[in-house]
Simulated scan of single mutants.
Amino acid sequence: MRAVLAMLLLLGLAACGSTRQAGQPPLAPHRADLGEPISCVPYARARSGISLAGDAWQWWDAAAGRYERGRAPQPGSVLVINRTARMPSGHVAVVSRVLNSREVLVDHANWASGAARGRIATDQRVVDVSPRNDWSLVRVWYPRINDLGTTAFPARGFVHSRMAMAGR
């Protein structure tokens, strides 16, 4: 825990002198900076710079009034997947790239079961399969079968790294 806090402090200090353009997502630590095994919440927090706590499914409500939220993916945003009977804590994943209006690549941890439990996976495909194209239902790449999983998961949307403005 101490090492993670030290890393976050150093990243915060390094960001002060960065050449990052305004509006770009925060600088993400290299995957070697995050030890495995790791669950999705601390991984998403470290990669996105979004400082929320609780289970993954709680991030959507926890972000209200603190961070901007929306239905459109953006690089650096966190996709919040609701909890289900098979996934009682929900899941969060950081958008690494938007491919089109219905497909993104994400970086996340602890998605697959078995040997991949607690592992970090990068540039994994997620597809919006919702009838209204609103990212309320998604299918996620499943490395074990080397394809999208057959289950569609209910999603809340995306928490963006920008702080919410008062009165919005």
Rank of each mutant, 00 (worst) to 15 (best):
residue 113 S to I: 08
residue 78 V to R: 07
residue 110 N to V: 03
residue 80 V to W: 00
residue 66 R to D: 04
residue 89 S to R: 15
residue 51 S to T: 15
residue 51 S to R: 15
residue 80 V to P: 01
residue 89 S to A: 15
residue 64 A to N: 02
residue 101 S to T: 11
residue 53 A to C: 08
residue 97 R to Q: 14
residue 114 G to T: 03
residue 63 A to D: 01
residue 58 Q to T: 11
residue 91 H to I: 06
residue 112 A to V: 08
residue 79 L to F: 04
residue 38 I to D: 00
residue 52 L to D: 00
residue 89 S to Q: 13
residue 69 R to I: 09
residue 55 D to E: 14
residue 85 A to G: 06
residue 101 S to E: 11
residue 57 W to L: 02
residue 67 Y to E: 01
residue 103 E to Y: 03
residue 35 G to D: 07
residue 105 L to T: 05
residue 36 E to G: 09
residue 99 L to P: 05
residue 34 L to K: 04
residue 77 S to E: 06
residue 37 P to T: 10
residue 79 L to Y: 00
residue 97 R to A: 14
residue 53 A to H: 13
residue 42 P to V: 08
residue 73 P to C: 12
residue 52 L to P: 06
residue 74 Q to W: 12
residue 110 N to C: 07
residue 75 P to L: 04
residue 112 A to S: 15
residue 43 Y to L: 02
residue 90 G to D: 04
residue 84 T to K: 01
residue 53 A to L: 11
residue 89 S to C: 12
residue 54 G to D: 07
residue 104 V to W: 03
residue 74 Q to L: 14
residue 110 N to W: 00
residue 60 W to S: 07
residue 52 L to C: 04
residue 33 D to F: 13
residue 109 A to Q: 05
residue 56 A to S: 08
residue 76 G to Q: 09
residue 59 W to K: 00
residue 68 E to S: 08
residue 88 P to E: 12
residue 66 R to E: 09
